[in-house]
């Protein structure tokens, strides 16, 4: 527990010290943080690394926490923000925005094209994700069970996925445009500023503050929905809270950094293997581990793989999936897992 908790600050500091260009010393970092008598170029590089590290922390934590909550609610280790359709909704919003900005929209928009993608694409992604969230909440309010909600999410996800593909095949003729959409769908942390961390930090703060009101309920849901109800859990309210929180987390993370797969699905499972299924520890530790993992993987990509541009999602899957498979196979011998 303490080990896990110390990984985050350590990796955060390392993410500032090392990168594609020069490494800094702790003394220089100190100067950057408190005395600001660094050469301009060094300060600029540290600004960039700080923005990147903050966004990685927030996005990693948000995706992992979102996945952990959903897995608890649906009692299914396969649940993650993407099965709810929230990520696909965001992808749809972003693609539409990119296409409108890329020349298929009104000509007047192009005048703003220099600054609009910075705001409009994330905003559209967020709007797309919110639309899906609203749909799920409506379905949830009508009293759908958890498995119904899950199925609804999967349906919405494939609908949005189909629409994204439609948009993509329409603009396939436009190299620049399809390159932008593909780049977005890979997900990236490139050149985010600290401001980008803010829209993720807000829902993350709310979700972390809500953990005391959710973790026991989610523990009880593990015994079955009926048992949880019989023990006094307000199941409808719990479902709505979890779906809303995890959707907001995923929506903001995806809006800022694109689709970074793997974290939402694997990190909570990973943490569950290590510390067990009590949500009181599982939820905060998932957030912590998601943040640390994304920071470390991104640091690795920036410092070691300098000559190769690899997106965090791809790298995460390459590095994390084999370890995860090994753990699962080891664990599944004899005792079972969930």
């Amino acid at each position: 527990m303490c080990v896990l908790a110390s990984i985050l600050p350590t990796s955060f500091v390392l993410a500032l010290l090392f990168g594609e260009t020069r490494g800094f010393t702790l003394r220089e970092l100190w100067a950057y943080a408190f005395t600001s008598d660094l050469p301009f170029i060094d300060a600029t590089i540290l600004d960039l690394r700080l923005g990147r590290a903050l966004v990685a922390t927030m996005v990693g934590a948000a995706l992992a926490l979102s996945g952990a909550m959903l897995q608890g609610l649906f009692r299914n280790p396969l649940a993650s923000p993407s099965v709810l359709g929230v990520t696909s909704g965001a992808a749809l919003g972003a693609s539409i925005a990119l296409v409108l900005l890329g020349g298929l929209g009104p000509a007047s928009w192009l005048r703003f094209a220099d600054t609009m993608p910075l705001v409009l694409v994330p905003a559209a992604a967020f709007a797309g994700a919110l639309l899906v969230t609203a749909l799920l909440v409506v379905v949830g309010l009508r009293g759908a069970s958890s498995s119904m909600l899950l199925l609804c999410g999967i349906g919405i996800a494939s609908l949005c996925g189909g629409l994204v593909q439609t948009v993509q095949s329409i603009v396939l003729r436009d190299w620049e445009l399809s390159a932008s959409i593909t780049a977005w769908s890979f997900g990236s942390l490139d050149d985010r500023s600290p401001v980008h961390a803010l829209p993720v930090a807000l829902p993350l703060a709310v979700a972390l503050l809500m953990i005391p009101f959710l973790h026991r309920e989610l523990d009880l849901v593990a015994f079955g929905e009926d048992t949880a109800r019989a023990l006094g859990v307000r199941d409808l309210r719990l479902r709505l809270q979890v779906v809303l929180l995890s959707s907001l987390l995923a929506a903001s993370a995806v809006a800022v950094a694109g689709q970074i797969a793997f974290i939402g699905l694997v990190v909570p499972n990973f943490v569950r293997l290590v510390v067990g299924g009590r949500h009181g520890t599982l939820l905060p530790l998932s957030a912590l581990s998601g943040a640390s993992l994304l920071l470390v993987v991104d640091l690795f990509e920036r410092s070691v793989l300098a000559e190769m541009s690899l997106q965090p999602g791809a790298l995460l899957s390459l590095v994390g999936a084999p370890i995860f498979l090994f753990l699962i196979i080891k664990e599944s011998r004899g005792q079972g897992y969930w």
Binding site: R216, D219, L220, A222, F223, G224, D226, T227, A230, L231, G232, V233, G276, G277, R278, Q335, G336, Y337, W338
Partner: peptide, 29 residues
């Protein structure tokens, strides 16, 4: 839940939960 306890049919329980935690869940209400 402070007045009525209900025990469902079947023996399905999460596999990795400890016996103490299983019983302690009854204290929730």
């Amino acid at each position: 839940a402070r007045r009525i306890a209900w025990m469902p049919q079947g023996l399905e329980v999460p596999r990795r939960v400890s016996v103490f935690d299983l019983v302690a869940s009854a204290r929730y209400p």
